[in-house]
Protein backbone atom coordinates (compact mmCIF):
# COMPACT_ATOMS: atom_id res chain seq x y z
CA UNK A 1 0.00 0.00 0.00
CA UNK A 2 1.35 3.43 -0.89
CA UNK A 3 1.75 6.05 1.79
CA UNK A 4 0.47 9.67 1.53
CA UNK A 5 2.98 12.53 1.28
CA UNK A 6 2.03 14.03 4.64
CA UNK A 7 2.62 10.73 6.37
CA UNK A 8 5.96 10.33 4.60
CA UNK A 9 7.10 13.76 5.81
CA UNK A 10 6.08 13.06 9.38
CA UNK A 11 7.80 9.68 9.61
CA UNK A 12 10.90 10.97 7.80
CA UNK A 13 11.53 13.56 10.50
CA UNK A 14 11.85 10.81 13.10
CA UNK A 15 14.06 8.64 10.90
CA UNK A 16 16.38 11.51 10.04
CA UNK A 17 16.63 12.57 13.68
CA UNK A 18 17.51 9.01 14.71
CA UNK A 19 20.43 8.98 12.28
CA UNK A 20 21.99 12.30 13.21
CA UNK A 21 25.71 12.21 13.87
CA UNK A 22 26.40 8.99 11.95
CA UNK A 23 29.34 8.87 9.60
CA UNK A 24 28.03 8.03 6.13
CA UNK A 25 24.34 7.96 7.13
CA UNK A 26 22.66 7.56 3.74
CA UNK A 27 22.47 3.75 3.53
CA UNK A 28 21.26 3.37 7.13
CA UNK A 29 18.61 6.03 6.41
CA UNK A 30 17.44 4.32 3.22
CA UNK A 31 17.27 0.99 5.07
CA UNK A 32 15.23 2.60 7.86
CA UNK A 33 12.87 4.25 5.36
CA UNK A 34 12.33 0.96 3.58
CA UNK A 35 11.82 -0.82 6.89
CA UNK A 36 9.21 1.75 7.89
CA UNK A 37 7.27 1.97 4.61
CA UNK A 38 8.06 -1.35 2.95
CA UNK A 39 9.61 0.56 0.07
CA UNK A 40 11.35 3.91 -0.45
CA UNK A 41 8.65 6.47 -1.34
CA UNK A 42 9.96 8.93 -3.92
CA UNK A 43 8.56 11.75 -1.78
CA UNK A 44 11.20 10.86 0.79
CA UNK A 45 14.16 11.59 -1.48
CA UNK A 46 14.06 15.43 -1.42
CA UNK A 47 13.68 15.38 2.36
CA UNK A 48 16.70 13.09 2.77
CA UNK A 49 18.68 15.19 0.28
CA UNK A 50 17.94 18.44 2.12
CA UNK A 51 18.85 16.89 5.46
CA UNK A 52 22.21 15.56 4.25
CA UNK A 53 23.01 18.58 2.08
CA UNK A 54 22.98 16.47 -1.08
CA UNK A 55 21.17 16.95 -4.37
CA UNK A 56 18.08 14.89 -5.01
CA UNK A 57 19.91 13.35 -7.97
CA UNK A 58 22.66 12.09 -5.68
CA UNK A 59 20.18 10.43 -3.36
CA UNK A 60 18.33 8.93 -6.31
CA UNK A 61 21.67 7.75 -7.71
CA UNK A 62 22.48 5.92 -4.50
CA UNK A 63 19.03 4.43 -4.11
CA UNK A 64 18.94 3.14 -7.68
CA UNK A 65 22.45 1.67 -7.46
CA UNK A 66 21.54 -0.95 -4.86
CA UNK A 67 19.36 -3.97 -5.66
CA UNK A 68 17.71 -3.91 -2.23
CA UNK A 69 15.96 -0.56 -2.45
CA UNK A 70 12.53 -0.56 -4.07
CA UNK A 71 10.32 2.23 -5.38
CA UNK A 72 7.22 0.03 -5.16
CA UNK A 73 5.62 -1.85 -2.29
CA UNK A 74 6.17 -5.61 -2.43
CA UNK A 75 3.79 -8.50 -2.03
CA UNK A 76 2.73 -9.69 1.43
CA UNK A 77 5.46 -12.31 1.22
CA UNK A 78 8.85 -12.06 -0.43
CA UNK A 79 10.41 -15.23 -1.78
CA UNK A 80 14.07 -14.94 -2.69
CA UNK A 81 15.64 -17.82 -4.57
CA UNK A 82 19.39 -18.17 -4.89
CA UNK A 83 20.61 -18.10 -8.47
CA UNK A 84 24.34 -18.48 -7.76
CA UNK A 85 26.66 -21.30 -8.76
CA UNK A 86 26.45 -23.56 -5.71
CA UNK A 87 22.67 -23.64 -5.99
CA UNK A 88 22.93 -24.14 -9.77
CA UNK A 89 25.02 -27.25 -9.13
CA UNK A 90 22.09 -28.70 -7.16
CA UNK A 91 19.37 -27.92 -9.66
CA UNK A 92 18.68 -24.31 -8.72
CA UNK A 93 17.84 -23.24 -12.26
CA UNK A 94 15.19 -25.92 -12.66
CA UNK A 95 13.78 -25.05 -9.24
CA UNK A 96 13.50 -21.37 -10.20
CA UNK A 97 11.69 -22.27 -13.41
CA UNK A 98 9.21 -24.40 -11.47
CA UNK A 99 8.55 -21.64 -8.96
CA UNK A 100 8.03 -19.08 -11.72
CA UNK A 101 5.67 -21.43 -13.50
CA UNK A 102 3.71 -22.28 -10.35
CA UNK A 103 3.37 -18.65 -9.28
CA UNK A 104 2.83 -17.43 -12.85
CA UNK A 105 5.36 -14.61 -12.44
CA UNK A 106 8.93 -13.80 -13.45
CA UNK A 107 11.80 -12.38 -11.35
CA UNK A 108 11.02 -9.05 -9.65
CA UNK A 109 7.27 -9.53 -10.17
CA UNK A 110 4.41 -9.80 -7.71
CA UNK A 111 1.44 -12.13 -8.12
CA UNK A 112 -1.75 -10.26 -9.16
CA UNK A 113 -3.35 -10.94 -5.76
CA UNK A 114 -0.42 -9.22 -4.06
CA UNK A 115 0.49 -12.36 -2.13
CA UNK A 116 4.10 -12.86 -3.14
CA UNK A 117 7.01 -11.11 -4.81
CA UNK A 118 9.71 -13.28 -6.38
CA UNK A 119 13.27 -11.98 -6.23
CA UNK A 120 16.58 -13.50 -7.30
CA UNK A 121 19.43 -13.41 -4.82
CA UNK A 122 23.08 -14.18 -5.46
CA UNK A 123 24.19 -16.30 -2.54
CA UNK A 124 22.75 -16.68 0.94
CA UNK A 125 25.83 -18.44 2.30
CA UNK A 126 23.89 -21.71 2.39
CA UNK A 127 26.05 -23.23 -0.33
CA UNK A 128 26.60 -26.54 1.45
CA UNK A 129 22.85 -27.14 1.70
CA UNK A 130 21.77 -25.95 -1.74
CA UNK A 131 19.46 -24.99 -3.33
CA UNK A 132 18.57 -22.24 -0.89
CA UNK A 133 15.82 -19.68 -0.42
CA UNK A 134 14.90 -16.82 1.87
CA UNK A 135 11.22 -16.42 2.76
CA UNK A 136 10.36 -13.18 4.52
CA UNK A 137 13.86 -13.15 5.99
CA UNK A 138 13.80 -16.82 7.06
CA UNK A 139 16.43 -19.15 5.59
CA UNK A 140 15.47 -22.41 3.92
CA UNK A 141 18.02 -24.93 2.67
CA UNK A 142 18.03 -28.04 0.50
CA UNK A 143 14.77 -26.99 -1.15
CA UNK A 144 13.43 -30.32 -2.39
CA UNK A 145 9.96 -31.31 -3.52
CA UNK A 146 8.48 -31.33 0.00
CA UNK A 147 10.06 -28.06 1.13
CA UNK A 148 9.05 -26.37 -2.14
CA UNK A 149 5.39 -27.34 -1.68
CA UNK A 150 5.45 -26.06 1.91
CA UNK A 151 7.03 -22.80 0.75
CA UNK A 152 4.50 -22.26 -2.00
CA UNK A 153 1.60 -22.91 0.37
CA UNK A 154 3.07 -20.46 2.86
CA UNK A 155 3.64 -17.60 0.44
CA UNK A 156 0.32 -17.92 -1.32
CA UNK A 157 -1.54 -17.33 1.93
Amino acid sequence: MRVETGEVTARLQDILAAHEGLEGPLLPILHAVQESFGYVPQDALPLIAANLNLSRAEVHGVMSFYHDFREQPQGRHVLKLCRAEACQSMGGDALAERVKHRLGIDWHQTTPDGAVTLEPVFCLGLCACAPAALVDGRVVGRVDETRLEALLTEVRA
Partner: peptide, 9 residues
Protein backbone atom coordinates in the same frame (compact mmCIF):
# COMPACT_ATOMS: atom_id res chain seq x y z
CA UNK B 1 30.82 -12.21 1.62
CA UNK B 2 29.09 -12.39 -1.75
CA UNK B 3 30.96 -15.23 -3.44
CA UNK B 4 28.88 -18.29 -4.10
CA UNK B 5 30.35 -21.29 -2.30
CA UNK B 6 31.65 -19.25 0.62
CA UNK B 7 30.18 -19.01 4.10
CA UNK B 8 33.19 -18.85 6.44
CA UNK B 9 32.51 -15.21 7.34
Amino acid sequence: EGDSGTFAD
